[in-house]
Amino acid sequence: MTAFADLARPLRARDLCQALDLPIASKNVENIRSKLKRLVSRSILNETEPGLFTQPRP
């Protein structure tokens, strides 16, 4: 969540991997994407476009 606040822009799973200093590998990107989708289903994040995630506005 800190990465979203620090960058203050919508992120893709690949961008988040870079922000978390994870290797850009298919396995890591897919795991992050899965977790982001789970956060969207719990209304913690929004998916503004397919694959583009952001924090909801207060």
Rank of each mutant, 00 (worst) to 15 (best):
R42Q: 14
S34N: 09
R9L: 08
R38T: 12
L45N: 02
I24P: 04
T48F: 10
E30N: 15
I32R: 00
S26T: 14
E30K: 13
L20N: 05
S34C: 14
R33Y: 12
K35L: 14
P10Y: 05
R14G: 03
E47V: 04
Q18C: 08
L52D: 04
N28H: 02
L45V: 01
I24K: 07
S26G: 09
S43L: 08
R57S: 12
K37P: 06
V29C: 02
T48H: 08
G51N: 04
L20A: 06
L52S: 06
I32M: 05
F4M: 02
P58N: 10
D6T: 09
R33S: 14
R38D: 11
I32P: 00
L36M: 08
Q18E: 14
N28F: 00
A25Y: 07
E49M: 11
D15R: 05
G51M: 04
S26R: 15
L52H: 05
M1G: 15
L52W: 07
L11A: 05
L22N: 02
E47N: 02
R57G: 08
K35G: 10
E30A: 15
R12W: 03
P58W: 09
K35I: 06
L36R: 01
Q18R: 12
R38W: 06
R38C: 07
R14D: 13
E30I: 11
F4C: 01
I32N: 00
A19C: 03
L39A: 15
L45C: 02
L45E: 00
L11D: 04
Q55A: 13
R12T: 13
M1K: 08
K27I: 12
R57W: 09
S43H: 09
R9N: 06
Q18I: 12
T48E: 13
K35A: 12
F53R: 01
S43Y: 10
